[in-house]
Amino acid sequence: MKKPPKDPIKSLQLDLFSQFVTNDLSQVSNTVELWERIPKYFFTAKQVEKLRTIDGLAKPYKWTYTENGHEYSVSIQPALVEQKNGGYKAYFPGVTEELIEEALKKIFSDQQYAIHDPEKIESWVKFTLGMLQKELKIRGRTRDLDQIKHAIEVMSKCNITLSKNNKEIWNGNILQDLVTVGRNEYLASTDTHHIARLPLFISHSINNLDYRQFNYDRLMSCNEQLTRWIYKRLINRFTQASPITEYSCMYSDIKQTSGLLQQTREIDNRRKILSAFNELQQKGIIQCLQIDERKAGRTITDVKYTIKAAPQFISEQIASNKRATDTKIIAQKSSIRIIKKT
């Protein structure tokens, strides 16, 4: 277990990560595609219940997918959380953990609660349970303290293994090296500061300026989990959004890379995607949607979705592009070494 630095570390990379092109800092945060493209929050309560044995335990769950011509697999070992009767129960990360991660990244963007060591490639976030509860409430995603405590425990105890082309490339927790006070104090206190190390993917992206500014408030206002997933995909991939440009994606790609389409009938999965796109339109992210069904006979084999961006989203992407350009100029002048992605 690594220990957090005792003293603050001056880091230009962290300074740049915390600077945004916006008139309202409370509305924006950073999305780190290198980390967020790993499917990990696709578990529902019903699914987890089915994965558990009669004594409440569960084996690791493996999800495989193809992206950019490479075969990936993510194996998620559930967190074993002690129950009041002294036994243990298995939990996989889900919606609450997803929302808390977003809140923690927002808190991390405030340098008062962040430590980044560019040499060791380590990033630490300081937080209290009260801070998380307040942040979630502000964004309309209220959780009580017990739910937040439970989610933090799941995030720090579940283990994720990512493999690429049958070769393991990373193994760790969503929140690593969580440092807390004694358990009784921890469970009773909302104001005690805790600190945890963020995954290497995030630290690496901070060092390499590989992240994008986005409207965090709008993301948190989205009700459907798939809506949030598609929104992030658009932020990272529809970077040249304009009144005349379009973005297309396939049903098959969304299904395997998100992990969020696990209905028994394909028609129900397609309805779920349509519902997500409708919410994206309601939230001022997309202007319109075209659907092109691919068929073999009367059977739908795939669907192509083509969207045009709404004016608000276009403005936000322009601001994000300007921020990225400004950041790179500062980095070049400061001789920050960028490691190319592979």
Rank of each mutant, 00 (worst) to 15 (best):
M131I: 01
D15I: 00
K304T: 09
Q213V: 12
D302E: 14
Q111H: 06
L136Q: 00
L104S: 06
S18Y: 15
N215R: 09
D117I: 06
G69S: 10
D144Y: 07
P199M: 09
L234D: 05
T66L: 14
S156D: 15
K126Q: 05
L234G: 05
H193E: 13
E119Y: 13
Q83M: 11
C249T: 14
Y91L: 04
Y61N: 04
D15H: 09
S242W: 06
D302W: 00
L129R: 08
G87P: 10
V81L: 03
D191E: 10
S252W: 02
S205V: 10
Y61E: 09
K341T: 05
R139Q: 11
Y41T: 06
I285W: 05
K10A: 12
F277I: 04
I206L: 15
T325F: 15
K50A: 14
T245V: 01
S203N: 06
K164P: 07
T325A: 06
Q332S: 08
V154H: 10
Y211W: 02
I54R: 12
S221N: 13
T44F: 12
G182R: 12
F238L: 05
G130M: 05
N68K: 15
H150Q: 09
V179Q: 14
Q111S: 04
Q256E: 08
L129D: 15
E98A: 15
M220H: 03
E316D: 15
S163Q: 07
M1T: 11
Q282L: 10
K283T: 10
C288V: 04
F20S: 02
A45L: 13
K149S: 09
G130T: 05
K6Y: 03
R143D: 00
Y216L: 01
N207M: 03
V181N: 10
T301P: 05
S11P: 03
N23G: 14
A276R: 00
I100S: 01
E119I: 10
K62Q: 11
R228N: 01
M250W: 13
T264H: 10
K126W: 09
E135H: 09
L198R: 00
D268H: 11
I273R: 00
W63P: 13
E185G: 08
K105R: 04
L260Y: 07
L234I: 01
W229K: 02
I148T: 05
I330Q: 11
E168H: 03
A90L: 00
L129P: 03
A296V: 14
C222Q: 12
H70G: 12
V48K: 08
D253T: 13
G94K: 11
V21W: 08
S275D: 10
Q176G: 10
E135N: 01
A310Y: 15
Y72V: 06
D292Q: 15
I138C: 07
L226A: 02
E97K: 07
